[in-house]
Amino acid sequence: MELLVSSAIGLLTAGGVFLLLRARSFEVVLGLTLLSYAVNLFIFVMGRLAIDKVPLLREGVAPSLANHADPLPQALVLTAIVISFAMTAVLLVLALRSHAEYGSDHVDGAEPPAPEPRRRNP
């Protein structure tokens, strides 16, 4: 299970980073979202993997790590999820405005110079 989780986080990170490095704003937003999945999962599993140990306290069950998952990373990640949503919104709006004002959705606000056409062999 540990290997599965680690490799999934690695995959999400790789996909996110690759998309972050793209030139089109929408792809960057996609990349950032993927990366935030990865990072949120990463922080979450810092409390280790726990199955069927929800951090809801019940009477008769000792309130300890033996019966419950670590609640702290969960609390941190809960707000992180909501905030990454807010940041996605900001980024999207920036992308939108930059596209409308520059006429290009390139992250630098301008289309790169066109590559030189390849010369055919004579």
């Binding site: 680690s6 995959l11 790789a14 990463f42 599993v45």
Partner: peptide, 25 residues
Amino acid sequence: RDATIAGVAGLGMAALTYAVLTRPA
């Protein structure tokens, strides 16, 4: 180039996570 950066980043994150998860909390 970007695929390499992304691949290294992913591998690193996976390794880091694995190193933590195999240790007791």
